[in-house]
């Protein structure tokens, strides 16, 4: 299980910080890359992550309308939804890309998002077909 999380500094990362302060125990197999805004997450980087063998990628951003960069995250969600379609078409599964905006700002919410994502990915078939 390898999960990569892009966390927006103003939402997901604050949740991650809170989860730490609350000592909420989480599975270890995820890595967080902090970004200034979810809009900075290039879909190509997400593809790169899958190509590097990630089981799942999560992009955590602020809720729509709550982005400090005006409407920056609107365009981000559109791009990533399009990528999901492509992942579905190739059978990798759009579910492996978690786009969660405005849901991980609080410690327990963040922990919940991460745990649920783990469980979901656990239930999915392995990506061995690509890797072999």
């Amino acid at each position: 299980m390898k999960i990569l999380i892009f966390a927006c500094k103003w939402c997901g990362l604050i949740g991650a910080d809170g989860a730490g302060k609350k000592r909420i125990q989480l599975p270890t197999q995820f890595r967080v890359i902090p970004v200034e805004c979810a809009a900075l997450v290039e879909p190509d980087a997400v593809i790169r992550a899958f190509a590097s063998g990630m089981t799942g990628v999560a992009v955590l951003g602020c809720h729509l309308g709550g982005c400090r960069f005006n409407h920056a995250n609107h365009a981000a969600i559109k791009r990533l939804e399009l990528l999901k379609t492509l992942l579905d078409a190739t059978g990798i599964g759009g579910k492996r890309l978690l786009i969660s905006f405005g849901t991980a700002h609080e410690d327990h919410q963040y922990a919940e998002v991460v745990k649920t994502f783990f469980d979901e990915l656990e239930a999915m078939p392995s990506t061995a077909a690509w890797i072999s």
């Binding site: 729509l64 409407h71 609107h74 365009a75």
Partner: peptide, 19 residues
């Protein structure tokens, strides 16, 4: 894809309900 959801709203098919 280049515009915000107010200017180019989605039919809601692929986007989450809270949009």
């Amino acid at each position: 894809i280049l515009y915000d959801l107010c200017k180019e709203p989605a039919a809601g098919q692929a986007l989450p309900d809270w949009v």
